[in-house]
């Protein structure tokens, strides 16, 4: 089994976000990037399959060089090796252009892959697009929200959960295929520090020189969507009316106020 696991070197929510005023895209340079939290579920899922059926798990990320620590931490978890697709030309990519680079990297560098595993979504832009778009670029079937799987010959039998319908489904999918892993469904294993420290030599960085993609079809220039504006979200200011005192009295005041607002 050759399993490719995707990871985004994401901007941790705790850090101050900076937006490029010209392009409206996120500035990822100079920001300490960490592997998207939900990708740890994907890695755990992939490692479990490898431990059961044998083979190799390869992490793949499109990111600036500051994305290397994210890949190192996944190697620390037990991923065998990693590929970083990194080029100035890839900067500012939307999901279409991101999936394009990821799919082409796989076609060229891991053509004999059996399975691609992604996180459900990222913590910083949460589109959940990349899995489906990669499947479309590669022309392979895909299933989202998977939490368990079994390999049967050339098919993978996946179990998934649709939270909004409260429904479990089992699908049989021909490989190669793409699956996204239900967030929070796995217990990611610990990072081995010694493995992580020696991870650098297991990371291969490739640029567009090796990939040879048309610069018009990658990065900001290749992105069909354009961020036309970014503004802090304004929410209705709150009234901040403090109600204090004997509880019966407070309850009466509150009910009166909610009646006035037309809620009761």
């Amino acid at each position: 089994m050759k399993i490719v696991v995707f990871t985004k070197a994401a901007v941790p929510l705790s850090s101050a976000i900076r937006i490029d005023p010209k392009t409206g895209t996120l500035i990822r340079e100079g920001v300490p990037l960490t592997a998207n939290v939900w990708d740890r579920d994907a890695v755990e899922f992939a490692l479990k399959l490898r431990d059961r059926y044998g083979g190799e798990v390869i992490a793949l990320s499109m990111a600036p060089p500051s994305g290397i620590p994210a890949l190192e931490s996944l190697i620390g978890m037990g991923v065998d090796r990693a590929i970083l697709a990194s080029d100035r030309a890839f900067a500012g990519a939307d999901t279409w252009a991101t999936a394009h680079v990821l799919a082409k990297t796989i076609e060229k560098f891991i053509p004999d892959y059996d399975l691609i595993v992604t996180g459900e979504e990222t913590i910083d832009s949460t589109t959940a697009h990349i899995g489906a778009q990669t499947a479309s670029w590669l022309g392979v079937p895909y299933v989202y929200y998977v939490y368990d799987a079994e390999i049967k010959g050339r098919t993978i039998v996946v179990r998934r959960f649709l939270e909004d319908e409260g429904v479990d489904e089992v699908y049989e999918v021909e490989m190669p295929a793409v699956v996204s892993v239900l967030k929070g469904s796995q217990v990611p294993r610990e990072i081995s520090l010694s493995r992580k420290l020696a991870a650098r030599e297991r990371i291969q960085t490739i640029s567009n020189k090796e990939l040879g993609l048309d610069p018009e079809c990658v990065g900001l220039r290749g992105s069909p969507t354009v961020v036309a504006g970014m503004a802090p979200a304004v929410y209705p200011p709150r009234k901040k009316i403090v109600l204090q005192g004997e509880s019966g009295e407070v309850a009466r005041k509150l009910v009166e106020a909610l009646k006035q607002e037309g809620i009761l």
Binding site: V227, A228, M230, A233
Partner: peptide, 11 residues
């Protein structure tokens, strides 16, 4: 985006 702190307009 960014947990509801920003609103992006995309075309």
């Amino acid at each position: 985006t960014f947990g509801g702190t920003q609103l992006a307009t995309i075309r």
